[in-house]
Amino acid sequence: MSEAILSATGLGRVFKIQHKGRKQDLHAVTDLDLELHTGRTLGVVGESGCGKTTLNRILLLLDTPTTGEVWFKGKACTTLSGEARREFRRAVQPVFQNPFSSLDPRMRVGKIIAEPLSTITGMSRSDIEKRVGEVLEAVGLQAADARRFPNEFSGGQRQRIAIARAIASKPEVLMLDEPVSSQDISIRAQILNILKDLQAEYGLGCVFISHDLATVRFMADDVIVMYLGRVIEKGTAQAICSTPAHPYTKALLAAALPPDPDAPRPELPPQGEIPSPLDPPSGCPYHTRCPLKFDRCETVRPPMFAAPHGGAAACHLLDPEIAQ
C-alpha cells in the first residue's frame, strides 16, 4: 500500500488531574499507532471516555501528545514550521459533533465557510465567493444561503454547513468526530450519505469517530476499536462487524441491537462496568468484564496478536502458543 497520508506512532496523552485531593495521572490515550491512507475511511469506535476525542484533537494538532508522534505525508508534525503548518491546516479539516457550538452565531454562513480558505494564498474575493457557493451546493444547500446566519437553519442543515466549511479548502483528510450523533434519525442518513459521497468523489482520507458500530460499518473501510485509551482490535469494517476476535468487540457487537424483534440472543452479552481510567485494571484492561478471562489475563497485558480475520487483537486467547 502507498505511504499513509496521516499516521501516528506510539501516541500517548496523560492528563494531570486533581482527584480526591491528590494529583493523579489520567491516561487518556496509550501507545496508539494508526495509519490513514488516501481514499480510505478509518473508523474509530469505543465507548465514552475511551479516548476518541483526545485522539482526534491530537491528530488535528490541537493538542500535543505526551509521547509519540503524528506524521503528515511522511513528516513529523512536531517539526512542522510556518508554511508546512499552514498547509496542514488546509489539508486536514474537522467536523465536530455539535453544529450549534461549532458555528459562530454572529457570522454569516458565507464567512464561516470561507474561513479555511484563508490558509490558501492568492484567492480573490470572487474566487472565494464562487467556492463557497460550490460547496454549499455540494452539501445540498443553495449558494444564496451564504448570506444567512446559522440560527436560520435546522440542526441537520447546520451540520451540512459545517461539512461545507470542512471541504472548502479542498482538503485531503477529514476528521469526523461523532458527526451525526446529535442528529435526528431521518437526518443522520442524509448526512452520512453526503459524507460518503464527498469521500468517494474527492478521494479523501477520513477518520470517522463514533460510538455506534452500525454507523461505522456503513462509513468505514478499516476500523480500530478502543478501550480505556488503547487499541484492542483492528481490522476491516466487515471483519470487525462480522467475525470480531476480541471479547470486548464481541460485547460491543452484541450490544448493537439490530432492528429485528426475532434476532437471536448474542453469545457473549456485555457484562460489568467500564473501569475508571484513573484506576485502570492490571494485565488485560478488559479482564474485569471478560467472560473468557483466565489466569494470565489479570497480570500480563496482552500484545496485539494476529487475528483470524486478517487484522489483530490484544487478547491472550489469540496467542499462538495458547491456541495449541
Binding site: 431521518s186 442518513a189 452520512l192 459521497d197 452500525a214 460499518r217 456503513f218 462480522s242 439490530p258
Partner: peptide, 24 residues
C-alpha cells in the same frame, strides 16, 4: 418504512442509505 430503512445496521454496508428528504 422509510425510517426503518434509513438506519444503518452492523450486518451489511450498502453503498448509500435510503433517506427521507427534508426534516420533521
Amino acid at each position: 418504512r422509510a425510517l426503518l430503512e434509513s438506519v444503518p445496521t452492523v450486518d451489511h454496508a450498502p453503498e448509500r442509505l435510503p433517506t427521507i428528504p427534508g426534516s420533521p
